[in-house]
Amino acid sequence: MGDLAVSNVLSGLAVRNVDAASEWMARLIGRPADARPMDGLADWHLPPHGTLQLVRDPERAGGSVVTLHVPDIAAAQAELAARGLDLQYDDNTSTKVKFGQLVDPDGNSITIIEAVAGFDPAASD
């Protein structure tokens, strides 16, 4: 049996109010949503193969987890601080990645990681 041929990934965060959550996410990503395909949804297209979606689901709001890979976590921390978001990270926690976390207003966990030189998280076991 071969691998499933996945060409894109859609990650969803359950939120109580998509409009309010979109304002916070726009600060995190650095731009407004790319699409509002229907009531209760907001999409950010994150090339090359992913979409981050806010989904109105009050019963599950705050229970989502997503990890965003960045090339330079220190630069991401500075950029997020300029946007009023406090990313704390520890570059001594792992020999493979530097990571930090943010929590959105609904309580969803957003982890930001930078792979340490020579480590490819997409190829890891």
Rank of each mutant, 00 (worst) to 15 (best):
P48G: 10
A117V: 13
R83Y: 01
P105A: 07
R83H: 08
A21F: 01
A75G: 04
L102E: 01
R31I: 06
G50P: 01
G62H: 04
G40V: 04
T95V: 12
L41V: 08
A35V: 00
N108P: 07
V15D: 02
A78N: 07
L41K: 10
D106F: 04
P48L: 10
D19E: 14
S11I: 03
A5T: 14
I110Y: 04
G30Y: 07
S7D: 15
A122D: 13
L68C: 02
N8R: 14
L87V: 06
L28P: 03
W44R: 09
D120N: 12
L85G: 03
L52K: 08
V66P: 02
L10E: 12
N8D: 14
I112K: 05
A122K: 08
S124H: 11
R60P: 07
F99Q: 14
W44G: 06
G12A: 14
D106Q: 04
R16Q: 10
S7Y: 15
I29E: 03
L13E: 05
A117C: 08
A33L: 03
R60F: 06
A26G: 15
F119S: 06
D125W: 08
T93I: 14
Q88I: 12
H45K: 11
A33F: 03
H49C: 11
D3E: 15
S94N: 11
A75E: 09
L54G: 03
D39Q: 12
T51C: 05
V66N: 04
D86Q: 11
D43N: 12
A115E: 02
A14F: 09
K98Q: 14
D43P: 02
G62R: 08
D39F: 05
D120C: 04
V103N: 01
N17W: 07
P58K: 09
V65L: 14
K96G: 03
E114A: 05
G84L: 05
G100A: 04
G30H: 05
G100D: 05
A75W: 00
D39E: 15
P32R: 15
G12S: 13
A5K: 15
N92W: 08
P58S: 10
S64H: 01
L46K: 06
P32D: 15
D19R: 10
T93P: 08
A33Q: 10
G40C: 02
A117M: 06
A33N: 00
N92D: 15
D90Q: 02
L28Y: 09
D86S: 11
P32Y: 11
G50S: 15
E79D: 12
A74L: 12
Q77V: 08
K98C: 12
L102M: 04
P105V: 10
A117H: 14
P48E: 12
V116Y: 02
A81Q: 12
S124L: 08
Q53A: 15
D91Y: 07
L80D: 03
V66E: 06
P105C: 09
T67L: 11
S94A: 09
